[in-house]
């Protein structure tokens, strides 16, 4: 415990002597905290730890994970936005925290994504897939499904892992692009939704691959298509919804963020190293086993992507009149 006090004192003194430019060159001067806005043990947490390990080795300073779950990732991201922009606190954010929630419930989200936060790099895309219970829906393909839904407006129920998740909005986008009406049944998380999918309480869903895939392979559920722009890497035989509905894409993605004001040099160094990590074969393998696609983008590319996603989901939210007060 003496050591902690001592190192605190030393770093405080260093902070007084060192000039700002030096701090940038020397970054990271101390332990870097990665705020993960989800509970430990979830996919995002696991991914953060994989990348954190790499960063730790690359920069020679500890990168520790702090889990700040709650309010659908808003709590954790808000904490990043409030942190000192010295590069020692960074965070992870996802589709719902950056592109959906700030527009779905603007009153309750205490940050503006591209104003209070700096996008560092996006590191993965988690494809949603369109899965049905074939005992409940007599269809074998996306066109058949659309036709069936048009004949039975409001009669078919789809499950989602919650209001304002990318899975919920994927289904809304699908309805808007096909002109169909499906009944929304929200669940608190995917697990119980999948139970009800298998039990036939709800007939279709857009959700992540990991929980669904075993049941698709086991024959209890049928995967009609992926919600990615192109066919997904995990199974090239499964068509993309976009083949029938050009432009349809609804993926969940994750990326690193930093508080606004974090020096550009630090953001660039961090982004470069995360990109290097995402290009390693073992990272790609690890991510694909968990149902995600590893990607590597520059800060600029990530910022543009967030802006595009915000525009896209804003339109869907407005059209479906989903905004919550």
């Amino acid at each position: 415990m003496k050591k902690t006090l001592f190192s605190l004192a030393v770093s405080a003194c260093l902070g007084l002597i060192a000039s700002p430019s030096m701090a940038k060159d020397e970054w990271p001067t101390d332990t870097v905290k990665i705020i993960v806005p989800f509970t430990a043990g979830g996919t995002t947490d696991i991914f953060a730890r994989v990348i954190g390990d790499h960063l730790q080795k690359a920069f020679g300073k500890p990168f520790i994970i702090e889990n700040v779950p709650g309010a659908g990732s808003v709590n954790g991201i808000a904490q990043v936005a409030r942190s000192k922009p010295d590069g020692l606190t960074i965070g992870i954010a996802s589709t719902s925290g950056l592109a959906i929630n700030p527009q779905l419930r603007p009153d309750q989200v205490p940050y503006k994504p591209l104003k209070d936060l700096i996008p560092v790099t996006m590191f993965d895309k988690v494809p949603n897939v369109l899965v049905i219970n074939s005992g409940k829906l007599p269809v074998k393909s996306v066109p058949e499904l659309i036709e069936y839904l048009k004949k039975n407006p409001g009669k078919v129920a789809y499950g989602s892992s919650g209001v304002g998740t990318s899975q919920h909005l994927a289904a809304e986008l699908f309805q808007q692009m096909t002109g169909t009406k499906i009944t929304h049944v929200p669940y608190p998380g995917s697990a119980r939704m999948v139970t009800d999918m298998i039990g036939g309480q709800v007939a279709m869903t857009f959700d992540n691959v990991p929980l669904l895939l075993p049941h698709v392979q086991g024959g209890k559920l049928t995967m009609l298509a992926t919600a990615t722009a192109k066919r997904a890497a995990f199974d090239e035989k499964v068509p993309a919804v976009a083949e029938f509905l050009p432009g349809f894409e609804a993926v969940a993605w994750h990326g690193f963020i930093a508080p606004a004001g974090t020096p550009k040099e630090i953001v660039d160094r961090l982004a470069a190293e995360v990109q290097a990590c995402m290009k390693k074969p073992e990272t790609i393998k690890k991510f694909s086993e968990a149902g995600a696609e590893a990607v590597a983008t520059s800060p600029k590319e990530f910022a543009d992507y967030i802006a595009a996603e915000m525009t896209k989901w804003k339109a869907v939210i407005e059209k479906a009149n989903l905004q919550v007060k």
Binding site: G41, G42, D45, I46, G189, K286, A290
Partner: peptide, 11 residues
């Protein structure tokens, strides 16, 4: 749910 996480970690 955490057990699921533990399994996922171990592929």
């Amino acid at each position: 749910a955490l057990m699921v996480g533990a399994m996922t970690i171990h592929n």
